[in-house]
Design a protein around this nucleic acid. Structure first.
Length: 350
DNA sequence: TAAGCGTGGGT
DNA sequence: TACCCAAGCTT
């Protein structure tokens, strides 16, 4: 295999031609002119991209930056508005940490820390995101290791050790490859390579700039790497969700606890499936209108949906009625939106 | 350290 | 269909 300098040079040449055009990236002309991207946009995109596909992030990124163009604007936003804008993207702790981080940065004058250590101390910024900001926004020779980099390193160096045990070795290999020249472009180039050529299945080795260097390719095992420890089967949980609709069209909604599943998000009162539920929120003529199936990261969920039309003076024990004009299904987490959609189809609104 | 934490698209 | 997995972080 050639040395690290040759590998990085070929990768950067490939990237100069094949870099993906993404909303949070600067244009090729700006890159050639040495213009760095806005750290706020780099940070926001990196947090959104944690365990989330580029396709899913794009619209959210546009809405967030359109509404909150800088970190001070985001820091000043009400919690509920940010959570509502994040609804549907998942991993809602990210949104809570995003706001906490924005407010910490705003409190220090709106400047993100320029060191990896400083970035790591902020909420929601871990080893990957700190390195990504340092490399992409500051052009520091930080080594980013995400799922793409793990896969590329596993194949290039034929690392047979399963993840996550192999992560330290992959990090070390990736660090060896990180150049002093254009480290930010290098970091993005490895990720683009993993996303577009060195893909999980059917990698396009024939057009890979590292084809001749790849140990897994030489051995014909590229499609089998990286190996992973077997995953535990998802259990099935069952429970109920109560959807109370007032005669004026208001829905009974409660804000979930900050910690735990769907933390900080609005939802319909439930029981028996999330450890945060309770008894039915009010006495009513509940009608079982069907079930909602939803899969979370670590369990399958089957929910019976109970719907009731209740009088204007109904006084719930849990949650509060959200007026029709203020109720937007798009501001609910997906499982709750599914339940609402079922109810809206089941019985015509008053 | 390992579990908890969402969702949507691809195969 | 069922499974994989995606620019991970927190506790």
């Amino acid at each position: 295999m050639r040395d690290a300098g040759q590998l990085s040079a070929d990768l950067l040449a490939w990237y100069d031609v094949n870099a993906r055009v993404l909303p949070w990236r600067t244009s090729p002309e700006d890159r050639r002119a040495g213009i760095r991207p806005d750290p706020y946009r780099v940070w926001l995109s990196e947090v959104m991209l944690q365990q989330t596909t580029v396709a899913a992030v794009k619209d959210y990124f546009h809405r967030f930056t359109g509404r909150w163009p800088d970190v001070q604007a985001l820091a000043a936003a009400p919690d509920a508005e940010v959570m509502a804008e994040w609804a549907g993207l998942g991993y809602y702790a990210r949104a809570r940490n995003l706001l906490a981080c924005a407010r910490a940065v705003a409190a220090r004058g709106g400047q993100f820390p320029d060191s990896r250590e400083g970035l790591l101390s902020l909420p929601g910024i871990g080893p990957y995101t700190a390195a990504a900001i340092a490399a992409i926004a500051w052009d520091e020779p930080a080594t980013v290791v995400d799922g793409n980099v793990e896969r590329v390193m596993a194949r290039l160096f034929r690392i047979e050790t399963p993840l996550p045990a192999a992560k330290p070795e992959m990090t070390a290999r990736a660090a060896d490859l990180t150049p002093q020249l254009r480290p930010g472009d290098h970091a993005q180039a490895v990720m683009d390579l993993g996303a577009t050529i060195c893909t999980p299945r059917s990698p396009a080795c024939g057009i890979c700039p590292w084809m001749g260097d790849c140990a897994a390719r030489a051995a014909g095992v590229q499609a089998e790497l990286p190996r992973r420890a077997p995953k535990a089967a998802k259990p099935v949980r069952q429970g109920r969700l109560w959807l109370a609709r007032r005669t004026d069209g208001a829905w009974l909604v409660e804000t979930r606890p900050d910690r735990g599943l769907l933390g900080g998000m609005p939802g319909f009162p439930g029981d028996g499936w999330d450890g945060a539920g309770g008894p039915e929120p009010l006495a009513a003529n509940w009608q079982d209108i069907g079930e909602v199936r939803h899969t979370f990261t670590h369990f399958h969920l089957i929910l019976r949906i109970l719907l009731a039309d209740v009088p204007q003076e109904a006084a719930p024990d849990r949650g509060a009625f959200l007026p029709r004009a203020a109720f937007r299904p798009a501001s609910l987490p997906t499982v709750m939106r599914k339940a609402h959609d079922l109810a809206a189809r089941a019985v015509p609104s008053p």
